[in-house]
């Protein structure tokens, strides 16, 4: 049985295939840098994300074969980090939302843009 939904697999595989191409910065002689949106694209979805308990395995499994040693290191860090986030989350899931919702989890320093 797959660890993640089919749709999420598609997202990850697409990402893995195109990851390198997003960071080109030289003027490659193109007339335009606008990208055309494909027709039929769905801009709105019923949101499903219910399989993050296997996030670390998912990241390594999907990306391990595609990318180099550096990325594998990143994935290892990501997996460790994810486990700690998950553990922390399981503890806090039992508590009700505080008045400020998820504020504590998403504080971003003022000098960077909150992506």
């Amino acid at each position: 049985m797959s660890l993640i939904s089919e749709r999420e697999q598609v997202y990850f595989f697409n990402w893995a295939k195109t990851a390198e191409s997003h960071m080109a910065e030289e003027d490659d002689g193109k007339e335009s840098y606008f990208e055309e949106r494909k027709s039929g694209k769905t801009y709105l979805v019923e949101y499903i994300f219910d399989t993050p308990r296997n996030m670390d395995e998912m990241i390594q499994k999907l990306l391990g074969d595609h990318l180099d040693e550096n990325l594998r290191k990143v994935c290892e860090v990501a997996a460790l980090k994810e486990r700690s986030v998950r553990t922390g989350r399981e503890e806090t899931e039992k508590q009700s939302m505080t008045e400020n919702g998820s504020e504590a989890e998403c504080q971003i320093p003022e000098f960077i843009y909150n992506f």
Binding site: M55, G101, I108
Partner: peptide, 21 residues
């Protein structure tokens, strides 16, 4: 990892759960 990972994997991906709660 320090500034973005937690906010994405710890909060943003869970927005449906956050809002439902």
């Amino acid at each position: 990892m320090k500034f973005s990972y937690d906010s994405i994997f710890g909060t943003k991906l869970w927005i449906h759960k956050e809002l439902e709660q």
